[in-house]
Amino acid sequence: MSRRSLLCAATLAACGLASPLAALAQAFPAKPIKLVIAFPAGGPTDITMRQLADNASKILGQPVIVDNKPGAGGTLPAQALQTAQPDGYTVAQIPLGVFRLGYTTKINWDPLKDITYVLNVTGYAFGIVVPANSPFKTWADFVAYAKANPGKLTYGSTGNLTSPHLTTEIIAQKAGIELQHVPYKGSADLMLAVVSGQLMAAADSTGFAPQVEAGKLRVLNTWGEKRLAKFPDAPTLKELGYDVVQNSPFGIGAPKGTSPEVVKKLHDAFKQAMEEPSYVAALGRYDMLPDYMSSAQYTKFAQETVVKEKVVIEKLGLGKGS
């Protein structure tokens, strides 16, 4: 073998010793990234996440393509991560419902151990709305009817075991009323149902804002620490005497085993993307705010939330054994 051949062989051998994962991370991303979200097209989650994806695409230099997977209480994207390659090219929205899965559904994976938490991006502003022509002018009217007609007052949410569903059941329990829950796959379908009178009420994020502003719906309460600037006449749950605040933070996760280098690239790009004025403005349409948590903070939040959600599920008697 010639000296040149020996040098080439040695060089190739040295290259072979370099970590393939490090080389992959250095080149990442080399193709489009899929961002799986938990709700259908046209709702507040879809609209705001598409803006975030668009911003991240420009930062990463590759398209970030939104893939809507509605249903199953918002947990299908997290389930999709379980069969995706841990290469950073599939990431997913992680709604709060994911942290309830271990208590409500038989799954063969662990929401804490089998997801890599990249960052939290925002949370929702929630409330309960009724049609504009409803006889319920106030929350007191709603409660009075429900007490007089147990189980007859229908309300919709964005799915079984979602935050709107569970929080409404907690409110009902505290108010001493029984409601009839009707699940939908997302805000767009839910709003059509309540505006058309198929439902008597809806519990949702402020995807209801355009319908309220158009005079088709009325807000009976909101669920934040303070009243929403857009709906200053709607009292908070705290003002109504319920010690409940719900904003259901959500962020982005990647498959278990995704390399720290790739996670950092994703984190940095999405963090920069959520700081862009266009994303802040998109959130503002629905009274949502940026709610950043780093990878470490988001992982800790996930661990703490799993413990809290167990208490909620047991209180409502909605666990697997119920």
Rank of each mutant, 00 (worst) to 15 (best):
N247D: 14
K310Q: 15
L6V: 04
P111M: 08
Q297P: 01
N221P: 10
V312M: 13
L101A: 10
L7P: 02
Q272A: 13
L289C: 03
G241W: 15
Q93A: 11
L7T: 03
L289S: 10
G284Y: 14
G71W: 11
A22R: 13
T222H: 02
K265F: 06
K310H: 14
L217G: 07
P183R: 11
A41K: 15
Q211S: 13
A84S: 07
I37Q: 08
S5G: 11
M288F: 06
S2M: 07
P40C: 13
D291K: 13
Q82I: 12
K69W: 15
L76A: 10
S163F: 08
N120W: 02
L179S: 09
I47P: 07
Y145S: 05
W109T: 05
A25T: 04
V195T: 14
W223F: 09
G215K: 08
V195C: 03
D54Y: 14
Q303N: 04
G317W: 09
A14G: 03
L289K: 15
A10R: 11
L7R: 12
T138Y: 07
L217Q: 09
L199R: 08
E261V: 01
N160T: 10
M200G: 07
S205N: 10
K310N: 13
L17Q: 09
K230A: 02
T104Y: 02
Q82G: 03
L101M: 14
E309C: 00
A254L: 00
A41T: 06
G102W: 02
V312T: 09
E275F: 03
E309Q: 02
A281Q: 13
A14R: 14
P232N: 03
N68K: 14
Q211I: 08
L192P: 00
D287I: 06
T138G: 00
P210M: 14
G127W: 04
I171H: 00
V212H: 02
A22Q: 13
L21E: 14
Y286E: 07
Y103K: 14
L17C: 01
S134P: 14
T104C: 09
K310E: 15
Y124N: 15
T299L: 06
A193V: 12
N120H: 03
C15N: 00
D141Y: 01
A18R: 12
G61W: 08
G207H: 12
V64Y: 03
P183K: 12
G123V: 03
F142N: 00
G197R: 11
P44H: 15
L52K: 08
E213Q: 12
V130E: 06
S259W: 08
D67A: 12
A273N: 01
